[in-house]
């Protein structure tokens, strides 16, 4: 790792102030992606602003027809939350399948979506569940938030505070893990709710998470695995590497979508 300054503010206001006065800061949440990146010397921030000490960012609250989750809430906590399990079991299951148990004890919701790794799980949930991302500056719709590989709508100095997940009627996430890294090679989140029907795919696309309109339309007509069984994504634009061709990934999107619809019931 290169040298950096480390700050651990206690309040969001302090964090914002620190961000404003730093040359090239990075926000440290759980660190499960950022610290490996720093170790590989792939990033050289001047300051690390650790938001892990801000108590206000660590909460899960069910209110009305949505669950609100603080940005610094750990995956393990989401996975175990009675509120999340009750209202949004697909989200709890997704959180329970991120990384491994030790990673889930550190990694956070805010960190995952702010980083927008193309193989991360939470972006698929946000997109499929029509989530609202509240930041220190504004509210961003999930549809507007994810801008491509490792890119989001977040501006400099903007910190995610919480994410609102409206309750779905039906939802499920199915993931095909990369055999080596165990990240999502293809993850498909399907949902039915006030927003209609959504199908979000992570892991497969070269530009990160995306929705599959054709599947959404087919499921709107007929909510059943058969409805998506014959919908094949074009391989163009999908990742290809030693773990599988773009064609294989396209095929897996169909298989995982089918299985997700079946699991959602």
């Amino acid at each position: 790792m290169y040298q950096f300054n480390y700050e651990r503010p206690k309040t969001l206001a302090d964090a914002e102030a620190l961000l404003a006065k730093s040359d090239d800061p990075k926000i440290l949440a759980g660190g499960q992606t950022l610290i490996p990146t720093l170790k590989q010397r792939l990033a050289m921030p001047s300051d690390l602003i650790d938001i892990g000490g801000i108590k206000d960012l660590d909460f899960i609250r069910a209110e009305g027809d949505a669950v609100m989750i603080g940005a610094a809430t750990r995956h393990a906590k989401v996975a175990q939350s009675a509120e999340v399990k009750k209202h949004n079991p697909a989200l709890a299951a997704l959180a329970a399948g991120i990384g491994d148990p030790a990673v889930r004890h550190m990694g956070t919701l805010g960190g995952s979506i702010a980083n927008n790794d193309p193989a991360a799980d939470y972006p698929a949930a946000c997109l499929a569940l029509d989530a609202k991302i509240h930041t220190t500056k504004r509210l961003i719709e999930a549809d507007e938030f994810f801008k491509g590989m490792f890119e989001t709508a977040l501006q400099d100095g903007e910190i995610i505070k919480e994410v609102t997940f409206p309750h779905p009627e039906k939802a499920a996430y199915m993931k095909f893990r990369n055999p080596a890294s165990r990240y999502a090679m293809v993850g498909v989140f399907v949902s039915k709710g006030p927003w209609g029907i959504r199908v979000a795919v992570t892991g497969a696309g070269q530009n990160g998470v995306f929705r599959v309109k054709e599947m959404e339309e087919a499921l709107a007509k007929n909510w059943s695995p058969d409805a998506v069984a014959n919908i094949k994504l074009p391989a163009k634009g999908l990742n290809a590497d030693l773990h599988g061709s773009a064609e294989y990934r396209a095929h897996l999107v169909t298989v995982m979508a089918k299985r997700a619809v079946a699991a959602a019931g």
Partner: peptide, 28 residues
């Protein structure tokens, strides 16, 4: 699971970490 792969043109080791070199895990 396991395969040590070099890029045939550049000779770079493609499977240079556990991200790409698939070690047997307990659930495999």
């Amino acid at each position: 699971l396991e395969h040590g792969v070099y890029d045939p043109a550049s000779g770079q080791l493609v499977t240079g970490s556990y991200m790409d070199y698939c070690m047997p895990r307990a659930d495999d």
